[in-house]
Every structure is written in C-alpha cells, then in structure tokens.
Computed example of a mutant assay.
Amino acid sequence: MKCREGCGACCIAPSITSAMPLMPEGKPAGVRCLHLTPANLCDLFGKPERPAVCGGFKADPEVCGADNEEAIRILGWWERVTAA
C-alpha cells in the first residue's frame, strides 16, 4: 500500500518517544506532531533529525484502513492496546 498523501494519521494517533526538534520529549498519543504541516505532510521527511520510528513506518491496509478517519481509529486502538 502507498501512503495516502495528506493523511497524517501516523503523525497524530500514536505516541513517538524519540526526541525531535520542537518536541524534545517526543509526542504523546493523539497529539498532532508539531512537524505535521497544514497539508498533513511531514516537514522532517528526508531529514536526519526525523525519528527512526517515523521513517520505519510502512503504510498497510491493516493499520491505515480505507481512509484517514479509519487510520486514526485503528492507529489509536493499536496505541491503547500496546501501551504498558
């Protein structure tokens, strides 16, 4: 599956524990990443300061669903069931 350009669900729903510019403590689940542009694109894409977890995320129908809203729901669910 190709990433849906402008979705941004993976930059909102999950937590990101890695430090990054503007977010030295990472990002809590459900909070919009400060590097997500108004067009829902990552402004750290391709830059060395982009967290490895972000670069390693691969779009897949099982986690991204059929649309952006479903992606938020699924990724949010995964975040809740895997939080310890």
Rank of each mutant, 00 (worst) to 15 (best):
P24H: 10
D67Y: 02
A29Q: 09
G30I: 13
C11S: 08
V63I: 12
K27A: 13
K58M: 13
F57Y: 15
G30H: 10
W78I: 15
W77H: 12
A13V: 06
R4K: 11
G65N: 04
S15F: 10
E79Y: 00
K47Y: 08
A83I: 05
I74R: 13
V81Q: 13
D67M: 02
T37L: 10
K58D: 04
A13M: 05
P51M: 11
V31C: 02
A52W: 04
L22C: 02
A52R: 14
T82H: 10
G55M: 00
K27E: 00
A19R: 10
E62Q: 11
M20E: 07
K47N: 09
W78T: 07
V81H: 04
C42Y: 05
R32C: 08
T37R: 09
E25D: 14
E70C: 02
C42Q: 11
L36H: 10
K58C: 06
T82P: 03
C7V: 09
E62D: 13
G76V: 12
P61W: 10
S18Y: 01
G6S: 10
K58Q: 07
I16R: 05
I72C: 02
V53I: 15
G26W: 09
T82N: 15
L36T: 12
P24S: 14
L41E: 10
E5W: 01
G6C: 05
G56S: 15
G8M: 04
I72K: 09
R50W: 06
A66N: 05
P38E: 15
V63P: 01
P14H: 12
C54M: 10
A66T: 11
L34Q: 13
F57N: 08
